[in-house]
Amino acid sequence: MKELYDTISLQFTLKDFHQQKPNLAFATAEKQQLIALLTYMRDVHRYTHLVFVTAVDWLEENRFQITYMLHNYDIKADFGIRVMLDRDKPVMESIHHLWEQGRVYQRELHEMFGIDFPGSPGVNEPMILEGWQGPPVMRRDFDTAKYSLETYDHRPRDTREPESHMKEKLYPED
């Protein structure tokens, strides 16, 4: 995988190469070069399968990381390409013209992280959360427990200390 990384590095600005397994590696690419890089990987190096697109919220560094995982059926290898976005203005180019299924992932990322993909078909439609009005839910600054306690009514819970409870139940006169 290192050879592949070196080959790509001749044309694209890559960094942070990380070989996780013999057939799984990651590298971080520039945001502006991503579409070209993906097209190049797909058409030249035969990484034809888009396995998934996912995002990570780096709250402390104030940025989002999007990972595009590609798979090569010939050599059975995976290559993950990471892209860093500014958390305050999370906009990314759409890849639905390269892989049709990309728009589903992008719709999900838009809903869960609030990352926008202009031009991706149906990206603004709700995917899982119908009628959601709060902030994007997978962002780490969204406190789900707090939201849940404020929004939904919880069933009251009885907790009893076993010793005193049994004492009260068995010997009520004491």
Partner: peptide
């Protein structure tokens, strides 16, 4: 279905169906 179970703190799960 009774009290949210392991999803008690989920943002998208109702805790009490009887409501």
């Amino acid at each position: 279905a009774i009290n949210g179970g392991m999803y008690w703190d989920s943002y998208n799960t109702v805790k009490r169906i009887d409501q």
